[in-house]
């Protein structure tokens, strides 16, 4: 039974510039975000991994600072990577020629000076992530998903204040993603997490704050709903009567032609239109012009996936 730890992590950046050679990868003039599970999303090359590595001090900023603090009612602690953070990299890091148990023992020895920590206080996490069944396997015998589970387990076993995940759901199937997400939610009672991911469906479920990066800059920050609204304005669900079902394909085509930058998706007998250009008024006028009157327009919360798709479409 885990005990809730009060407080949350605060990320702060100031005049931050991180570069690879001559290429500027991250530019953040000023930024502050706080939460238990902070998701960082953005297109490939937007600077997500760079942000994590800078926070871990694996990359040195050319200018400025980026750091994390643990803040609760009573105190404020600056988080130091080697003392307070754990990192699960994009390619699950498990030694190819070591049995998983030896690898877990190694981490326990490094972090707790007790190679059997995973059998004692850490046994819960090992069981939760079903790592015990992998103990006898060598690193190279693990699937991508299994490697992720092992890496996540050793991270959690470190008892960090802040756990940074780089694409944790990459390579996991629906069930495995759900399991890992469940463990992350459970563990977020004890620690904070920063999750860089392309899996909007999972991010939407677990994150309480989302940071959207675009071309190395912070584009949007906020709760999932706020971010969705900021990215795409909103979504409208278009429903029609039975006798008009056959003409839905025509309606979709017409909507796409009229609202080129919006996402238009047919969902069963309904159509979902996402994008700031398509609000209730513009859609009502559009259907009026098309002489389709028995239509029902319902504003709905856009999914993070649709919001990001709309956002990235506009970028392109």
């Amino acid at each position: 039974m885990s005990i809730d730890t009060p407080g949350e992590v605060v990320l702060q950046a100031e005049k931050l510039r991180v570069a690879y050679g001559k290429n500027l990868a991250l530019t953040i003039p000023a930024f502050e975000v706080r939460g238990r599970i902070i998701a960082i999303i953005g297109h490939n090359g937007s600077g997500k991994s760079t942000m994590l590595k800078t926070l871990l001090e694996l990359l040195l900023p050319r200018q400025g600072t980026l750091h994390a603090k643990w803040v609760d009612d009573k105190s404020e602690t600056r988080l130091v990577p080697e003392r307070h953070m754990a990192f699960s990299p994009e390619n699950g890091a498990v030694f190819e020629d070591l049995p998983v148990e030896s690898y877990v023992k190694l981490w326990c020895r490094i972090k707790h000076r007790d190679s059997n920590y995973y059998k004692k206080a850490g046994s819960r996490i090992v069981e939760q992530l079903s790592v015990t069944s992998l103990f006898s396997k060598l690193g190279r015998e693990l699937s991508k998903g299994q490697r992720r589970r092992v890496q996540a387990a050793v991270g959690f076993l470190s008892n960090p204040r802040l756990f940074l995940f780089d694409e944790p759901f990459d390579g996991l199937d629906i069930m495995q993603s759900a399991e890992l997400a469940g463990v992350m939610l459970e563990e977020s009672r004890r620690m904070s997490m920063i999750v860089s991911s392309h899996r909007m469906d999972v991010v939407e479920r677990i994150a309480d704050v989302v940071v959207v990066l675009r071309d190395g800059q912070v584009h949007t920050v906020g709760a999932v709903d706020e971010v969705c609204a900021m990215l795409c304005g909103g979504s409208i669900l278009v429903s029609s009567d039975i006798h008009q079902r056959l003409s839905l394909a025509t309606v979709v085509a017409a909507l796409k032609a009229e609202f080129g930058s919006c996402l238009v998706n047919q969902i069963g007998h309904q159509v979902l239109v996402t994008g700031s250009e398509a609000n209730l008024d513009t859609l009502a006028r559009f259907f009026h012009r098309q002489q389709i009157n028995d239509i029902k327009l319902d504003p709905v919360r856009p999914s993070l996936l649709d919001a990001m798709r709309y956002h990235l479409n506009k970028l392109n």
């Binding site: 130091v80 990577p81 080697e82 754990a86 699950g92 890091a93 498990v94 030694f95 190819e96």
Partner: peptide, 17 residues
């Protein structure tokens, strides 16, 4: 680095250590 463990280890232990 071949095993992808360099960055997590450095992050967990600190560069100096």
């Amino acid at each position: 680095s071949r095993n992808g463990a360099l960055l997590p280890l450095v992050a967990a232990c600190g560069k100096n250590s």
